[in-house]
Design a protein around this nucleic acid. Structure first.
Length: 318
DNA sequence: GTTTAATGGGTAT
DNA sequence: TACCCCTTAAACT
């Protein structure tokens, strides 16, 4: 699940559900028992994301640092329609490393590679190692200039650089394949041969696309879907002025009444977010299928440890 | 029942 | 480049 959009969405969701409350913190699975005890009952001040790193700050400068890795999931459910409803929280299902619980919300973390309590200094050090984050554009340092310097000095292929968190923070394996296809860039182009203009175009598109990913909880890159998504967000923003875009869709589209109910014997919560967009990509996981643009067979190859997907005909050096 | 793959990343070789 | 960690569900036998 997790590229940068997932973590930023998660930070917003956790913030909305828990900031200003004193959640119970536990480790039903038992592998974070001591850490949970250090956070249990503390005021949760805020949750923030940089690239794929999540930090949840509690009072007293105790910060829960989470990295979901490849398979981690942090589910946040509203289990009580109103705080006063005194509903019974759903029992943890599976290997729940960390559970946050207040009177209204429950959040279960599974499968993360990093779960630890860090100091503000450690947070700063982690963030300092990251390249600019398209989801933090406008903040100091979050512009493409640093990444351009690295790009111009390396022969490493552009598809590898896009995934390097010290070059750009937040891009993962889906965004890189789809983005390079969309802009017809040969994934193997050495960094120093990538035109500045091309790289800036990629950056600008991420700045455009990733907030849509945050809003819908889903990577959306196909032109027609992007157009529809933007229209939906614009319409929602009009009727719900002042709300953060990330909530305009989810909290309307989710089947609110079913949240948090876990029927006996069922491994998953009964609710699923209702997405208006079927998961659809141009090249990602579509090896062997025709390129939507030229009909040539989509290819795949491991690059930077991950399966890259691209069209060998219409993606050229830029 | 067992194996594999998955939107990641660190460390050892 | 290889292997390790994390967890789950789909795809195998």
């Amino acid at each position: 699940m997790p590229e940068g959009h997932t973590l930023h969405r998660l930070a917003l969701t956790l913030d909305r559900a828990f900031a200003g409350t004193r959640p119970r913190v536990s480790s039903p699975q038992g592998r974070f028992t001591e850490g949970a005890a250090l956070l249990d009952g503390l005021l949760l001040e805020r949750a923030q994301a940089w690239g794929k790193h999540l930090f949840v700050t509690f009072e007293g400068d105790r910060i829960l640092n989470v990295h979901l890795g490849l398979i981690g999931v942090f589910d946040v459910h509203r289990y009580a329609v109103e705080p006063a409803a005194a509903a019974v929280p759903p029992p943890p299902v599976g290997a729940v490393r960390v559970r946050l619980l207040n009177e209204e919300f429950v959040a279960d973390l599974r499968g993360a590679t990093v779960v630890e309590i860090v100091t503000p200094e450690k947070l700063e050090a982690t963030v300092a190692r990251l390249g600019p984050d398209p989801l933090r554009v406008g903040e100091p340092g979050h512009d493409p200039s640093r990444s351009l310097v690295k790009l111009a000095r390396t022969d490493r292929p552009v598809a590898e650089l896009l995934m390097d968190q010290s070059v750009l923070a937040g891009v993962g394996n889906v965004y890189r394949s789809e983005l390079l296809w969309k802009h017809r860039v040969d994934p193997f182009t050495p960094g120093r041969l990538v035109r500045k203009k091309t790289w800036l175009t990629l950056w600008e598109d991420l700045v455009d696309l990733m907030p849509i990913g945050v809003a819908f909880g889903q990577i959306i890159t196909l032109d027609d879907q992007v157009t529809r998504a933007k229209a939906m967000l614009a319409e929602a923003a009009e009727s719900r002025e002042g709300e953060h875009p990330a909530y305009l869709v989810d909290w309307q589209g989710g089947r609110e009444g079913e949240r948090g109910r876990v029927p006996a014997g069922q491994r998953r919560p009964a609710y699923e977010r209702v997405s208006p967009f079927p998961r659809d990509y141009a090249v990602y996981k579509r090896q062997g299928e025709p390129c939507p643009l030229c009909g040539s067979r989509i290819r795949t190859q491991v690059l930077a440890g991950r399966n890259l997907f691209w069209c060998g005909r219409c993606q050229r050096r830029h």
